[in-house]
Design a protein around this nucleic acid. Structure first.
Lengths: 191, 191
DNA sequence: TCTTTTATAACACGACCGTGCGATGATCGG
DNA sequence: CCGATCATCGCACGGTCGTGTTATAAAAGA
């Protein structure tokens, strides 16, 4: 057998190059060539692991989801329920450089794939996962509320988190302002 | 003097063509040529009114802002304060076809111009206008609250509206679900 | 009618794009 | 040591892009 490389590992490495290109030059500048140059490989080598550009983009998007969910599940927060919810949700918001990269990529893909069904599936995973997390958190935080009320508050929490994230990304809020607003929202939840 | 056309009017007509291209093929497919074909003019004619592609995009984005603000200021809602707030905010959300087009364009530009300073200025106008509207509404709705509390609640209202809008655009919520969640949020505001 | 100015059209250029394809290098079982 | 096979490379094709430049049509004042 000839030299064989770990395909999955190589694909992750190439996805990281996609992230760097997106954060530096914007999602519009992601091409086979730019990603190849960024990763240090030739375009032909890139094509061994991703047949088309759409495939490359979809994988890069999925990798963001994988990283965030892995970080969240690895996290095992202790302490007061409000604090637990806070820590978990902050894991998804662009409050530092690493998370800012992830969030900007997520939103770039969301806007880019408003019509592309290939990417829409990945987006769906992200949104469903996020809303599921919110519903879990709310139901643990407010177990006495009715189910409909829980669903409503979870939807709203989801909207607050994503809305604040968008406003950070657009430089309309600072991370500190957004975090304190999330805190205020959690504090205002019905007891 | 030769034949002279209303430049502003022509530019609005071409911006409308940009919108159609965006909603049909996505923002990535906006080029001088596609917009020219969509508008029925030649690419040379297009270039008379917009020297560069960036200029065309920035104007198309500004037109969205102009249309929404015009609609809001033209609106003179009567009745209960909560209802007034509701009607004004719904004017900005993608709850029907026309507003869906506007919101998806706004959001597409937001993602597209995360690094482009030309478009960032237009986005800034939109975000500042929106947050100013929210602060006005909150301060009229809850005049007795402290200023800091008003600012906080306005920020949160802004995040809820934008978050729900994003979730509609991503087909994660139906317009009806989002509207009822906005209603629930308004109902939950401190008295 | 002629001139001048504007609107529109048509085309050319260089750059980049996605993608297919053949050549080359590396690595192992035989 | 030798072919079989995977990894990698480089290039070439057709297409689209943004953007100039130039030519033509139209219309209004002289």
């Amino acid at each position: 057998m000839p030299k064989v490389v770990d395909h999955e590992e190589r694909r992750r490495e190439l996805a990281a190059a996609v992230w760097r290109v997106i954060t530096r030059d914007g999602v519009a500048n992601v091409s086979m060539r730019t990603v190849a140059a960024e990763s240090g490989w030739s375009s032909g080598a890139l094509r061994h692991y991703f047949a088309t550009r759409d495939e490359l983009l979809a994988f890069a998007c999925q990798q963001v989801l994988a990283r965030v969910t892995e970080r969240i599940t690895a996290l095992n927060p202790q302490g007061e329920p409000h604090e637990v919810v806070r820590v978990l949700l902050l894991e998804t918001m662009p409050i530092d450089t690493e998370r800012h990269v992830e969030a900007s990529i997520t939103f770039a893909f969301l806007a880019l794939g408003l019509g592309d069904p290939k990417l829409a599936a990945v987006q769906r995973q992200i949104l469903v996962g996020m809303s599921g997390l919110c519903l879990n958190l709310i139901s643990h935080l407010l177990p006495m509320e009715s189910r409909e009320r829980q669903v409503s508050l979870a939807r709203r929490l989801n909207a607050v988190v994503d809305g604040l994230s968008v406003h950070i990304l657009a430089s309309h809020l600072t991370p500190a302002e957004a975090v304190s607003e999330l805190d205020a929202h959690l504090a205002d939840l019905p007891t």
